[in-house]
Design a protein around this nucleic acid. Structure first.
Length: 874
RNA sequence: GGGCGAUUAGCUCAGGGGGAGAGCGCUUCCCUGACACGGAAGAGGUCGUAGGUUCAAAUCCUACAUCGCCCACCA
């Protein structure tokens, strides 16, 4: 049974070149419609769906995206091979504030601001930006090999998704879950918009605490300028020091106003002076105190952070006003304690880094309590699982302690709030398909919604919600969400809130949480730190598969992933190894289609097929548990250490031997490689598809691993074959070690006689002597006694006589020893220049001395050994 | 202030009551007809510290130290 002669012979070059394989490979998948969900041939298969965490249209994909995409792609490729009807839905996020900032920066280079263009022209400009950068991202996804269904691509500002936003807004409004109110919100004076709590980063800042005299009381503050807006001083109701002052008025310096002293539980008597200035318009706590005591709120800072209060400070920036106010107070002798440094946490805009100003402002809020309760309960009830489970704690810590969500943004790019205000103070929220009220005096709210408002609907809106489309019915809820732990609050929790509100099913059954990509020293990658790696540059240098393999191999659920270029090189090497092992198999006629005669298998065949079975089962389980790193590890070691290093080497003997042995080996090798390529395909899709097609002699473009069957455990296990292989490996290792220790060049054949003592060893010797000869570079005989003068080595139950003296090139060995002695002596001289009477240096780092001494001793003992042998030789 | 996690070979990390592992790096030899993006043989760790449980602890418990991360309305 020789290889089918009509089969095309495919020759591979000795090095894998990703640049000629990847682009045609991706096109082949597209042409085969491999990534299209709902293929007619899978109509009766179960669906498996996931949505991409939509990247921002700003900029391009970074290495974190690459990592996330590799995980999603590996998972969907696995499921596709398992013959699910897979939907991986791609798309992008309009990323309101980030995109608006980016476009504004571009405009600034032309000397323009968004106000020069006006709202309509500016928004048009952003759409143009989106067309340009969005296209760039899509190209990058192709390079990564992402098997997404391009026919279902979505954008958060698509008409359909915008309608979903209006629909949910209307529903929330009608159920009193969204409301407009004047509240303290986080205000970014640079971006001039409100921010939600999680868009604020808290950083420890060294501030200055000053203590100010308010009549009979003193108060401490780090934000002196806000005192212009104080409307009370608060003390603890039980504080004996101040009880007599409660209800009295105290003078507010610099303003000529008087403010009341109020009692409030919030005040900690042990902190500072025990008396707190109350600025309801510029501090969330103070606002609460103000509400409790009916205090007025006086706004003293405008939207730029400039002082609005009348007087000498008017128009000053808040950071100019701060020292100015302190100076003015000092001039009046009202600074009772000097400034002292004080470490406290200050909010910064997560987008631009500006210090956030708490500010009283009229905004729209989502009443999150009922929504968050349901979102938390869904996870508690097991409707959605977190992987790894510890990550659920982060989720709960948020949904269980959430404040109302400020969703209005004073931006132009985003979903405009679907609310109209009438001439007589009416507030109307029309249905998503209704005409808004028109006529004199009617205006739409100027603001847009937080970008996460539409993201929260993503799994439902991309599938057609609010319409019950065929896609929505088939693919919702999605099977799994893959995202980073940094995004649980922003996105996962909000999707759970909104989707359980509208659907009312959970948006996904599982959340697989991955870590962040870090550099080789564990530091977070960022452009500013200069340690960022562009995944596309790595791909250009080493190929997509090498980059994917590097990331996947380090992927343990929930933990961070280090990345450095040299590890990608290592991956590239493995990919190339895979290429060459397959190349060898092809050159030797391996073919998965050859029949496998189980009865005629050799020990080596039964060993490798058994191991193949085990690894198939192991990898299957690991993939399903999202243990990509461990799956890669198992495959790496099986492929390299067992299949390539041992089976392929052993196969060289039968492949060059009898026809029947050769054909049997071709069948086994073909089968093993075919299976390994399938198992590797989810991680390294390009090279495996190319090799698999070559190995199987496929030339038809529709034949692709992307749609091939996932391998099943063929159920072969052969402990006896494993035991015998282990024995062989030990013997070979011992022979090689012996050779190295004796300094016999590996090119030189070492004469050997396998000493068969009994029937079992005789059989072993007869079976393996050709392979032993090839693996350990021996010329080999089987006998019962060691020839005179030969040395005997015993390992793994076999005794082998070795013709050591006949194998040594005396002149070469003598030269080698002389060289070693000279090198050691030179090293000694270079290290200290002084030798003690034993020939070793007296003073040098101990490890250096030890190293040199060892080398010197080794050379001396080699010399002794050689002399001894020469003497015996006569 | 609260919570979570980490501490294992030079670096980055797996492992998890009974033989101390991987990748990369390092040393020596070898360009042998799949592959030098390769092969072979090696060196290297008292698994953070101190106690405890156990026949047995890198692994479980307690405390401590150090380092991360997250949350929080600390004037």
């Amino acid at each position: 049974m020789a290889t089918d002669p009509s089969r095309p012979v495919i020759e591979l070059p000795p090095q894998y070149d990703p640049s000629v394989v990847e682009a045609p490979g991706y096109q082949r998948w597209l042409d085969a419609e491999a990534f299209t969900a709902g293929r007619p041939d899978r109509a009766d298969r179960p669906p498996f769906s996931l949505v991409i965490p939509p990247p921002n249209v700003t900029g391009s994909l970074h290495v974190g995206h690459a990592f996330e995409h590799v995980l999603m792609d590996a998972l969907t490729r696995l499921k596709r091979m398992q013959q699910y009807d897979v939907l991986w839905l791609p798309g992008m996020d309009h990323a309101g504030i980030a995109t608006q900032n980016a476009v504004e920066r571009a405009l600034a280079k032309e000397g323009l601001s968004r106000h020069d263009l006006g709202r309509e022209a500016f928004v048009e400009r952003v759409w143009k930006w989106k067309a340009e950068y969005g296209g760039q991202i899509l190209g990058q996804m192709r390079r990564l090999g992402d098997g997404v269904d391009w026919s279902r691509e979505r954008f958060t500002m698509d008409e359909g998704l915008s309608r979903a936003v209006r629909t949910v807004f209307k529903q929330l409004f009608d159920q009193d879950l969204i409301y407009r109110a004047e509240r303290i919100i986080n205000w970014c004076p640079r971006d001039r918009t409100a921010l939600s709590d999680i868009e604020v980063d808290h950083r420890e800042i060294e501030g200055e605490l000053v203590t100010i005299q308010y009549g009979p009381l003193t108060v401490a503050t780090t934000r002196a300028e806000t005192m212009l807006g104080d409307t009370a001083v608060a003390v603890h109701p039980d504080d004996e020091r101040y009880r007599h002052l409660i209800g009295t008025m105290v003078p507010l310096p610099l303003t000529g106003r008087e403010i009341p002293v109020v009692a409030d539980e919030h005040v900690d008597p042990a902190f500072g002076t025990g008396a707190v200035k109350v600025t309801p318009a510029h501090d969330p706590n103070d606002f609460e105190i103000g509400q409790r005591h009916g205090l007025p709120s006086i706004t003293v800072l405008d939207e730029l952070g400039n002082v609005t209060a009348h007087g000498p400070f008017q128009g000053l920036d808040r950071f100019e006003a701060r020292p100015a106010v302190v100076e003015a107070l000092r001039a009046e002798g009202l600074i009772v304690a000097e400034k002292r440094p004080y470490l406290h946490s200050v909010g910064h805009c997560s987008r631009c880094g500006t210090v956030v100003e708490p500010r009283l402002s009229l905004q729209w809020f989502v009443r999150v309590n009922p929504l968050a309760k349901r979102a938390g309960d869904a996870v508690r009830a097991g409707e959605t699982d977190f992987v790894p489970p510890e990550m659920a704690a982060r989720y709960f810590s948020w949904v269980d302690n959430m404040h109302d969500w400020c969703v209005s943004r004073q931006l132009w790019w985003g979903h405009r709030i679907p609310v109209w205000y009438g001439p007589d103070g009416e507030t109307v929220v029309p249905g998503p398909d209704e005409e808004p009220p028109a006529g004199p005096g009617w205006v739409q709210d100027e603001d847009v919604l937080d970008t996460w408002f539409s993201s929260a609907l993503w799994p439902a809106s991309t599938l057609g919600w609010p319409d019950v489309t065929p896609d929505f019915e088939r693919y919702y809820p999605t099977s799994v969400l893959i995202t980073g732990y940094d995004i649980i609050f922003f996105w996962v929790a909000r999707m759970m809130m909104f989707c359980t509100f509208i659907a009312p099913k959970v948006p996904f059954r599982q959340v697989m949480v991955h870590g962040l990509v870090r550099d080789s020293r564990g530091r977070k990658m960022s452009k500013s730190a200069g340690n960022g790696i562009d995944p596309l540059e790595l791909i250009d240098s080493y190929g997509t598969d090498a980059v994917r393999w590097t990331l996947a191999r380090a992927a343990n659920p929930g933990t961070d992933v280090p990345l450095s270029e040299e590890w990608v090189q290592g991956s590239r090497n493995f990919v190339n190894k895979l290429w060459n092992a397959t190349r060898f198999a092809l050159m030797n006629g391996a073919d998965p289609a050859l029949p496998l005669d189980e009865a005629g298998l050799s020990v080596a065949d039964r060993w490798i097929l058994g191991r193949l079975s085990e690894v198939t089962a192991e990898v299957d389980a690991l993939y399903n548990a999202f243990e990509f790193g461990k799956a890669c590890d198992a495959l790496f070691h099986f492929a390299r250490d067992e299949l390539f290093d041992w089976y392929v080497e052993l196969a060289k003997v039968p492949l060059r031997g009898e026809q029947a042995d050769a054909d049997r080996t071709r069948a086994v090798l073909g089968r093993c490689l075919d299976t390994v390529l399938r198992l590797l395909h989810p991680i390294v899709p390009f090279v495996t598809d190319e090799l698999w097609r070559s190995l199987n002699g496929f030339t038809d473009d529709t034949q692709t691993l992307a749609l091939a069957q996932w391998p099943a455990d063929i159920g072969l296990r052969d402990p006896a074959a494993v035991a015998e292989m282990t024995r062989l490996q030990e013997l070979v290792a011992e022979l090689r070690r012996f050779r190295t220790q004796q300094g016999i060049a590996s090119r030189r054949k070492l004469g050997a006689v396998l000493l068969a003592g009994d029937e079992a060893t005789e059989a072993f010797a007869a079976r393996w002597s050709p392979q032993l000869a090839s693996l350990a570079d021996l010329t080999i005989d089987v006998g019962s006694a060691a020839p005179d003068g030969w040395e005997t080595l015993t390992a793994a139950g076999m005794s082998v006589a070795l013709d050591l003296l006949g194998s040594i090139d005396v002149d070469a060995e003598r030269a080698r020893i002389t060289r070693a002695l000279a090198a050691a002596a030179k090293e000694i001289a270079e290290t200290s220049g002084k030798l003690n009477n034993q020939g070793f240096l007296a003073k040098a780092p101990e490890n250096v001395v030890a190293k040199i001494r060892a080398r010197h001793e080794a050379a001396v003992s080699d010399q002794d050994l050689l002399n001894e042998r020469l003497r015996r030789l006569g």
